[in-house]
Nucleic acid binder design. Structure first.
Length: 516
RNA sequence: GCGGUGGUAACUCAGUUGGUAGAGUGUCAGCCUUCCAAGCUGAAUGUCGCGAGUUCGAAUCUCGUCCGCCGCUCCA
């Protein structure tokens, strides 16, 4: 059922020009998609909704557009060079894949557990006279375990530091580590998976010329913190917003545009006084949920706290949407502490602090981040909107229609202009006139092909909220009918009012006002 | 990467024991039509994923290869 909906959605997206598989004529490129004529409009509207809700609606939030190429040290400071490199190993028998370092760490834990067990046993034996410290330092068996654990830890750290995959493999073999599930010791070579794409800036020679395509837009904001603060004279708390492409070499890209290798983020980093970050974290949680609820039913949205916090965060929550394949992350809200600014400050040697006149002191601001996946937002809007319903046809019989119930402010085309009949020149001519007026206000489509009912259905399929029909009465008194997508109801209005009526209903302002 | 599964028109799919491709929808042109898809007439569109083999003959059989989907590993 749900899977059917998802398949229908994917083909609908292609059929009506929303989303095409990338490089299709060359058999496609896994995990990459192109936006078509309807898709780009929808996506731009989503971006505009976000941008205006951040930058236009908050005097203390400004936007930037930083470059995708950044100095390679940025990714060192951010922790991505380390955190994005996972050494993976496959078990040939069980076909399971593990992180090699996690396997070794598990083995180290076992060694420590063994030592602890020896200590426990001795403690029971000696009773109250037991000196744990002395025992740990002198008992040969405990010593053997702890020393082995320490040595292994050291070797693991070295191997990771030097990217020595061969030694990692050797370590797994020497420790006789078995697959936790099956007990098999039949391992493949350990391979490094780099989740960042790299490229070459050719006029810098050798390895130093290696650059990464940014895996998140946030760092472009952090490294511009001082520039923005000084040039805009913002006082803390204030935020910097950015929309842009990011790139991650996912091991598997799946679920249509949900997880792509090239994707777009809408991120806002909010800089606050240390100690106030949880307050702001909760404020932004609420604001962001309100933003989502303005376009998505509340029951399809929920918060999901992170079980494991990232290296930079002291609190993290996801906004999840119920996709056809289950509740999945749409947006992340993180309290990033002063990790990023502190780290860049340390590595670059440049101060990234703020002088707080109220406190009369310098500090490194804390950061609360909101980060939405733009493409995921497109997917959520589409999967929430696509409906197949039964409506009466001209004879009052049941007929089905496919309709995209997207919010009018997000709809790719706002208005279709239709002459009732195309073989009547007066109607066609008048319709052209109306179209030529409306096109200055919003995106319109003119269509005269086929019966008008069929044209309505065509517009329904791409989510056009309003259809204006020019009929014989129009020729008499300059009025037209406006047909609304969801209710299919029509009202007759003077031509001179169409731009205002449709404009009001499709204006982004409607959405923004819901956030107040 | 492994396992499962699939690749035929823009979309959804059919194609029987091997005889060089069809349907519905959609698209285009024309007719009809005074407001909600499926009225009439006509038309265009396929290297049947790609390559090799078997065969007189391959969408169909064999092998290889590429790509997609689902699951596992990963997801800061």
């Amino acid at each position: 059922m749900q899977e059917d909906l998802f398949k229908r959605l994917v083909s609908h997206c292609k059929e009506y020009g929303f989303i095409y598989p990338s490089s299709e004529v060359y058999d496609g490129l896994n995990g990459v998609y192109d936006y078509g004529p309807m898709g780009v409009e929808l996506k731009n509207n989503i971006k505009e909704y976000w941008w205006r809700s951040m930058v236009q609606m908050h005097e203390n939030i400004t936007g930037i557009d930083s470059a995708i190429f950044m100095h390679p040290l940025i990714w060192k400071a951010s922790g991505h060079v380390d955190a994005f490199n996972d050494p993976l190993v496959d078990n040939k028998d069980s076909k399971k894949r593990y992180r090699a370092d996690v396997l070794v760490e598990g083995e180290i834990d076992k060694m420590i557990a063994k030592a602890d067990k020896e200590v426990d046993k001795a403690a029971k034996r000696f009773g109250e006279t037991f000196d744990e410290k002395l025992y740990r330092e002198t008992n040969p068996r405990v010593l053997e375990y702890t020393q082995k654990a320490e040595a292994t830890e050291k070797r693991l750290a070295n191997a990771l530091k030097n990217n020595d995959m061969a030694d990692l493999k050797a370590l797994i073999e020497e420790l006789e580590i078995a697959d936790p599930d099956t007990g098999s010791r039949n391992w493949t070579e350990v391979r490094q998976f780099n989740l960042m794409f790299s490229t070459q800036m050719s006029n810098i020679g050798g390895d130093d010329g290696k650059l990464y395509l940014r895996p998140e837009t946030a760092q472009g904001i952090f490294v511009n913190f001082s520039n923005v603060q000084k040039t805009t004279r913002q006082k803390i708390p204030f935020g910097i917003a950015q929309i842009g492409k990011a790139f991650r070499n996912e091991i598997v890209a799946r679920q249509f545009i949900f997880r792509m290798r090239e994707f777009e983020q809408m991120e806002m980093q909010f800089f606050v006084r240390p100690g106030t970050e949880m307050e702001w974290y909760n404020t932004w949680k609420a604001r962001r949920m309100a933003w989502h609820r303005a376009v998505t039913p509340a029951e399809k949205l929920r918060f999901k706290d992170h079980d494991n916090l990232a290296h930079y965060a002291n609190a993290a929550v996801d906004v999840q949407f119920e996709f056809p394949f289950g509740f999945k992350e749409l947006e992340g809200i993180h309290s990033r502490t002063d990790f990023d600014l502190g780290s860049h400050s340390q590595l670059s040697g440049k101060k990234m602090q703020y002088f707080d006149p109220e406190l009369n002191e310098h500090y490194t601001p804390y950061v609360v981040e909101t980060s939405v996946g733009c493409d995921r937002m497109v997917l959520s809007v589409l999967s929430n909107a696509l409906v197949e319903e039964t409506v009466p046809d001209a004879q009052g019989e049941d007929s089905s229609r496919t309709v995209l119930r997207v919010h009018p402010a997000l709809a790719p085309v706002k208005c279709a202009v239709l002459p009732l009949l195309k073989n009547k020149d007066e109607l066609v001519e008048k319709a052209r006139e109306v179209y030529d007026k409306l096109k200055f206000h919003f995106i319109c489509q003119y269509d005269e092909k086929d019966a008008v009912g069929r044209r309505y259905r065509r517009q329904d399929a791409i989510g056009t909220p309003y259809c204006v029909t020019i009929d014989f009465e129009t020729l008499e008194n300059n009025t037209v009918t406006i047909r609304e997508r969801d209710s299919m109801e029509q009202v007759r209005v003077p031509i001179t009012e169409v731009a205002k009526i449709v404009g009001d209903k499709t204006d982004m302002r409607k959405l923004l006002e819901m956030l107040a």
